[in-house]
Each structure stands twice: as C-alpha cells, then as structure tokens.
Write a protein that binds this DNA or RNA. Structure first.
Length: 289
DNA sequence: CTGGGGAAGGGGCCC
DNA sequence: TGGGCCCCTTCCCCA
C-alpha cells in the first residue's frame, strides 16, 4: 500500500526530527472496500496552499482475515480527508468531525458490533449493570455500553494529525490542541495559558493561591473556542461570527446546525436565521469582535 | 524528592 | 438511548 503513496516533489520536511506517523487502520472481517482521498496542509506554514494528495486507496480485505493498512503521514502534515467515495454501494463513507481535525473511524461499526457480541455476557444484578470484563457496575445500561467501548482498541474517532483514536469527540478536540497549540484557558494573573480548564484552575490555585468559588462538579461558564486559531469567546454569536469571518471554509459552518456548537440565545439575530441564511449574511450583519 | 504542568481515562449531566 | 460537553482524577514528565 505504501508504494502507492504519492509523495510530493520536494516534500516539505521542515523538521529534521520529523517522525513518520502512520495512521493505522486495522480492518477485521469486512468485505467492504472503500476509497480514501485526502489532502494535506502544512501546519508549520498555514499560508501555503493545501496540497491535494489524490490517493485512492481501494481496501479489500479477505474474509476472516485481518488486514493492516497504514498511511504514511508526516507529523507536520495535517491530513484532511477530502472525499470518501466507496467503490461499492456500501456505507463506508468517511465523515469529518471536530471542525476538520478528525475523522470518524469507518471501521468502528464493525468493532462495536464485535464488542457487543464479545461482551454480551454482561449481566444485570438487580439495579446494577456489570461489565463482563472488569466487573465494574453501572446504574444505567448506556453507561455500561459506553464503558465497554473503553475496552476496545479500535476507537470511534481518529485524529488527523497523528492517527490516535478516541471514543469521544471532546477527547479528540482536547487532544487536537496538543497539535495546534491552541491554549484557550489563559491565566489573568500571569502570561500562562493552558489547554484544559482544570490545568488553569490548578495553576491558579497552586501558583497564585486563588480558590475558585465553584462547588464540586459545578459547571463553569461555557467558553467557545476556535480550534483553528485559538480565539475564544463566551458569546456564541460572536463565536459564530468569528468563524464565518476568519475561517469561512470551516466545516463547522457547513455542517448541520448543531445547538451544541452554537448556543445562540433566543433574541440573537443569528438564532432567527437558518444556517443557510447565515452563510449569506452581509458584512453589515456581522459585528466583528 | 517535590511541585507544576501536559495529557488522557472515566463518568455525570444535558440535549 | 446515544452523542456531546464537561469535570474530576490520575499518570507521567521535567525542572
């Protein structure tokens, strides 16, 4: 498979210690061939035009035979799946998640199916649902189902920078910040910034002696973070306007309207417009923060 | 050895 | 019920 990989002429290797990080996909017992096409952009030189790697990869695995496939991806290349065109009428389409920083693992459905069969001996003792592998107990079936996924090596979402897998888009988003350098949580007492809120609060507690007035597990104010540039806002409308203004090709703008991504209040100008309407908002509508 | 910070696992809660 | 967001916690590394 690797010999088909189209290396660029004068391939941009900016770092001498640039390790090849294969994006591994292991296919188990699936007859469905599919094609991955993708483009890469150079994360060390964002102004450079993305490089389109036309790389159809028909994957045909033999029945009952595990096939291993890896894309050679340099760590300084951000792999963005562009098109997924199944070569048959299967539903093995690649789906972009996390604003283009991740993909849904096309093999995950096979994995979950296998997982459900493998751990079907999980039993219900009264009100408790018990994991058949580690004997942990859960109050709800769905919590057990989610827990079972932690036992699987095959993850639902894959990081397009390094190929690492996660079962949660939030975990993927959090991980992505290690590649993008986005540090949304800034200390107002010094110049330090952190990728996670708990790191900031830990820092402020230990270094500045600040005690946060939050009770145990009390939700903090939501902070909207642009994972492309690190811009933050507590206002969902401004968050949306920022993405539209500075990242007009962000998949976030072209995906379905997700209330979890943009929680506009009912009085917001934007909340009264459909997503398609928003895409043609005039500049006058947009108040740049 | 210790403290600070990065990274991620696990699970509660909301939609 | 599942997906998504978030918090708590732990582990690890490094100065």
């Amino acid at each position: 498979m690797d010999e088909n990989f189209h290396r660029l002429q004068n391939n941009e290797k900016h770092q001498s210690n640039n390790m090849e990080q294969p994006l591994d996909l292991t296919i188990t017992n699936t007859k469905a061939p599919f094609t991955i096409e993708y483009l890469t952009s150079n994360i060390y030189n964002p102004k450079q035009k993305p490089i389109y790697y036309h790389q159809p990869l028909p994957l045909h695995s033999s029945e009952n035979q595990q096939q291993h496939f890896s894309m050679n991806v340099s760590i300084n290349e951000h792999v963005v799946p562009n098109i997924s065109s199944p070569s048959t009428s299967t539903n093995c389409a690649l789906e972009i998640v996390n604003g283009g920083h991740g993909i849904k693992n096309p093999l995950f459905d096979c994995a979950t199916e296998a997982l459900q069969i493998k751990y079907a001996n999980s039993t219900n003792h009264g009100e408790q649902y018990v994991c058949g592998l580690c004997m942990k107990t859960f109050k709800l079936q769905r919590l057990l189902n989610r827990h079972l996924k932690n036992h699987s090596q095959l993850k639902r979402y894959l990081c397009t920078f390094c190929g690492k897998g996660f079962n949660d888009t939030f975990d993927l988003k959090r991980h992505t910040r290690t590649h993008t350098g986005v540090r949304p949580f800034k200390c107002d007492k010094c110049e330090k910034a952190f990728t996670q809120r708990c790191s900031l609060e830990s820092h402020q507690r230990k270094v500045h002696g600040l005690n946060h007035p939050y009770g145990y597990k009390i939700r903090r104010n939501k902070l909207y973070v642009c994972e492309d540039c690190g811009h933050t806002s507590t206002d969902p409308t401004k968050h949306y306007e920022h993405i539209k203004r500075f990242h007009p090709y962000s998949p976030l703008l072209h995906r379905y309207y997700d209330k979890r991504q943009f929680k506009f209040d009912s009085n917001s100008l934007l909340s009264n417009k459909s997503l398609s309407d928003r895409s043609v908002l005039s500049d006058e509508d947009i108040h740049i923060q």
